[in-house]
Simulated scan of single mutants.
Amino acid sequence: MRRNGQVLVFDADDTLWENNVLFERVIADFLDWLEHPTLDKYQLRAVLDDIQKANAVAHGYGTQMLLRSLADCVERLRHRPATADESDAIRRLAAVLTDQQVELIPGVAETLAALGDRHELLMLTKGDPDEQRRKIDASRLAHRFRAIEIVREKDDETYRTFLKAHALTPAACWMIGNSPKSDILPARRAGMNAVFIPNDHTWALEHGELDPGDERVLRLRSFRKLQDHF
């Protein structure tokens, strides 16, 4: 049963296009390169995750945060700052993240085209503004959205501010994304409905527990399934 005349607010990274899978490939290559006399890759990854968690709070998200975190990881494990050669190696490992190409998730382009005929579409994404704009431009999807906002963090206050800025009624709005932490839980606390579309490559720091009894959270297996409900 389709809902008519709704406001659909879309996350971008790992909802409209693949993102974290690229970061995971860079991290895997980094851990192979890094090596350590006593720590295995799982232990090294735990160190890096801890560093990324702190850097995300202090410096936001995106490629530059990852580069900083990789260098900080070298410094923590080797008890000295990364050398010039090490810094160059890290930049080479992460070069794929500055590629102008984006890989749309299957079904995104045609689904947005169909939904735009029946609903109002907006985008709310977090990260480095320049990096996010580059990905939005490369996706060729910007024309599908009435408004696009790039924010530093997506917490409860972000959603309340977003709703007020666009004069939206929360009960008629749906936040659509892959992240329980950033997309679903804060949107629900702001009074919005939500659609959870899991992505196998969602960053571990974006995980969270959803209430299985919350009837205002729609869970879908794929992006294309949005057309069955909206």
Rank of each mutant, 00 (worst) to 15 (best):
R2A: 15
N4A: 15
L8K: 03
D14S: 09
T15H: 08
W17H: 10
V21P: 08
I27A: 02
D29W: 11
D32V: 14
W33K: 08
E35Y: 13
H36M: 11
P37T: 10
L39C: 06
L44V: 02
L48Q: 05
L48F: 04
I51M: 03
V57D: 05
A58C: 05
G62I: 01
T63L: 14
M65D: 02
L66T: 00
R68W: 07
A71L: 08
A71V: 06
A71E: 08
V74H: 02
V74N: 01
E75I: 00
R76D: 06
L77H: 02
R78I: 01
R80E: 03
A82K: 05
A84P: 02
A84G: 04
E86N: 03
S87W: 12
D88A: 14
R92T: 06
V96K: 07
T98Y: 13
Q100K: 15
Q101P: 00
E103G: 11
I105L: 13
A109P: 00
E110Y: 13
T111Y: 08
T111F: 06
L112D: 00
A114E: 14
L115I: 08
G116V: 07
E120A: 13
L122C: 07
L122A: 06
K126T: 03
G127A: 04
P129N: 10
Q132N: 03
Q132S: 01
R133Y: 09
K135V: 01
D137I: 12
R140G: 11
A142K: 07
R144F: 05
V151G: 03
D155Q: 09
E157F: 12
T158P: 01
R160C: 10
T169H: 13
A171E: 15
M175H: 03
N178L: 11
S179Y: 13
K181W: 10
S182Y: 07
P186Q: 11
R188T: 03
V195T: 04
F196H: 14
A204T: 13
E206S: 15
G208V: 06
D211W: 11
D214P: 02
V217T: 12
F223G: 01
K225W: 14
L226Q: 10
H229D: 06
F230S: 03
